[in-house]
Every structure is written in structure tokens, then in C-alpha cells.
Write a protein that binds this DNA or RNA. Structure first.
Lengths: 85, 85
DNA sequence: TGAAATTTGTGCGTATGTATT
DNA sequence: GAATACATACGCACAAATTTC
């Protein structure tokens, strides 16, 4: 499992966004499947809530995922993937 | 809307504190009403989080506002306003 | 019915590091 | 060195929506 490097020049939220983006892009997280919850991300990657929120917000803004309050954050449908444009 | 001047001798947090103080004093922000959130202030005035926090902290210290954990920062009740003393 | 747990979103407070003046 | 300002990151609290029991 990829881990984060606090000493790297890239911010933790960017590193985490990159990891999650790859997990979606490669299909490890299939289309329309829930991403790990915010809580899980903090536990799995050892970051604060805000940091995990920031990472996911980047994916949402980039079009890799969408969030549903009370439910979770989901990877977009195959046809909606940004790298298909 | 008042804006901030990075070239002025007064620090940005002081300029912002002055603006918010006026907005309370004039009643534009009524008593016991929530001030703009930290996030809103950063967006509206183009400053960093810390700068907006600093400005609001000044108002709290002066007695123009009080903060409620998990909720926000609110203008004081009419009777508690510093200019009434 | 409804209470509890989960999840996302938002809010403030604080600390640290970097750059600038 | 001190003050200002930005970015990053941690922590904790409150709210609303949803799911589960």
C-alpha cells in the first residue's frame, strides 16, 4: 500500500489525492463505487480529517468523484471519467 | 464593499478588523448574528485563514463578538457592546 | 417508530514552516 | 530580530443526511 511522505515537497493532501486518483484510474476502485470514507482515510493514511477532505475535494473538482452527504464519496461512471475527454 | 489595501501601512488583519467592527457597529451585522465564516472572509477579502482569524480574534478581544465552538463567531448582544460603556 | 451509528460538510483554535519587510 | 502574511496540518465541535438496528 502506498504511504505518504511528510518530508516530501508535495503536501500530504496532494500525495493522497494522487494515490486515490490512481486507485480510481486503474480500476482498483471501480466506477460508481464508494471511496474509503473520510474516517477510513484518516486511519489508513494517518492524516487529519481536514487533510483527507482536501484530497477528496481535489478529486471531486477534477471530476473523478462526486460526494453524497450522508452516504459517501463515489467514483464517477466510466463515461464521465476526465481522462476520456 | 470595502476592500483591503496590501500597500497601506496598517496590517491586513487590522484593516479587516476595522471593516468587521464597522459592520457590527452600524448594525449591518445585527446583534447575536453570526459573522461571516472564516472561509467566507478568506474568499471575500482574499486573505489567508490566519489573517482572517487574527482579525476576528481582535473583535472578540475588544468585546464586539464571541465565538461558540463548533458553531461560529457571533456579534454581541446590544447591551454588551463596547461603545455602550 | 425511533434511537444509534456513519458519513459528509462546516466551523473555530492552534501549531509549524516559509517568505517578506 | 520582530511583525506580517501565506500555506499546510493537526484537533475538536456542531449539523444534516443517510443507513442500520
Amino acid at each position: 500500500m502506498s504511504t505518504l511522505n511528510p518530508d516530501a515537497p508535495e503536501p500530504l493532501y496532494e500525495q493522497l489525492a494522487t494515490i486515490l486518483r490512481e486507485r480510481i484510474r486503474t480500476g482498483e476502485i471501480p466506477p460508481r463505487r464508494a471511496l474509503p470514507s473520510n474516517r477510513r482515510l484518516t486511519l489508513d493514511y494517518g492524516v487529519a480529517r481536514g487533510t483527507a477532505l482536501h484530497a477528496v475535494a481535489i478529486l471531486v473538482e477534477e471530476g473523478w468523484a462526486y460526494s453524497v452527504p450522508g452516504r459517501g464519496v463515489f467514483s464517477v461512471a466510466d463515461n464521465d471519467r476526465p481522462d476520456r475527454r
